[in-house]
Amino acid sequence: MDDWWRRVVEVTPPADHRIVLAAGLVAVLVIAWSTTWRFARHVVTVVHEGSHGLVALLAGRSLSGIRLHSDSSGLTVSRGKPHGFGMVATLFAGYVGPGLLGLLAAWVLGTGHAIGMLWGLLVLLGLLLLQIRNLYGLWVVMVSAAILVAVTGWLPASWQSGFAYVVAWFLLLAGPWSVVDLQRSRNRGRGRTSDPDQLARMTWPGGGVWAALMLAVDVGCLVVGARLLFLR
Rank of each mutant, 00 (worst) to 15 (best):
W159Y: 14
W159R: 15
W159P: 14
S161D: 13
G162N: 15
G162K: 15
F163A: 14
A164P: 12
V166S: 12
V166A: 15
V166Y: 15
V166R: 13
V166D: 14
V167E: 13
A168E: 15
A168M: 14
W169S: 12
W169H: 14
W169I: 11
W169D: 14
F170S: 11
F170R: 11
L171D: 13
L171Q: 14
L172K: 10
L172V: 13
L172I: 12
A174N: 09
A174F: 07
A174D: 09
A174E: 10
G175M: 08
G175A: 14
G175R: 05
P176M: 06
P176C: 08
W177M: 15
W177R: 11
W177K: 13
W177C: 06
S178W: 05
S178E: 10
S178P: 05
V179S: 04
V179M: 06
V179H: 02
V180K: 10
V180C: 08
V180I: 13
D181P: 04
D181T: 10
D181E: 12
L182E: 02
S185T: 07
S185P: 05
S185E: 12
S185Y: 06
R186W: 03
N187T: 07
N187V: 05
R188K: 10
R188L: 11
R188D: 08
R188T: 07
G189A: 07
R190M: 08
R190N: 09
R190V: 08
G191I: 04
G191L: 04
R192T: 09
T193W: 08
T193E: 13
T193N: 11
T193I: 09
T193V: 12
S194A: 02
S194H: 03
S194N: 02
D195P: 00
P196F: 00
P196T: 02
P196A: 02
D197L: 02
D197Y: 03
D197G: 00
D197P: 01
D197E: 10
Q198D: 01
Q198A: 04
Q198Y: 02
L199N: 01
L199T: 00
L199K: 01
A200Q: 00
A200W: 01
A200M: 01
A200E: 03
R201D: 02
M202W: 05
M202N: 05
T203R: 00
T203P: 01
W204H: 03
W204C: 02
W204G: 02
W204V: 03
P205W: 02
P205D: 03
P205R: 00
G206N: 04
G206A: 06
G206H: 01
G208S: 07
G208A: 07
G208N: 09
V209R: 01
V209K: 03
V209Y: 03
W210Q: 03
W210I: 03
W210Y: 06
A211Q: 06
A211W: 04
A211P: 07
A211L: 05
L213Y: 09
L213C: 11
M214A: 11
M214T: 07
M214E: 12
M214H: 08
L215T: 11
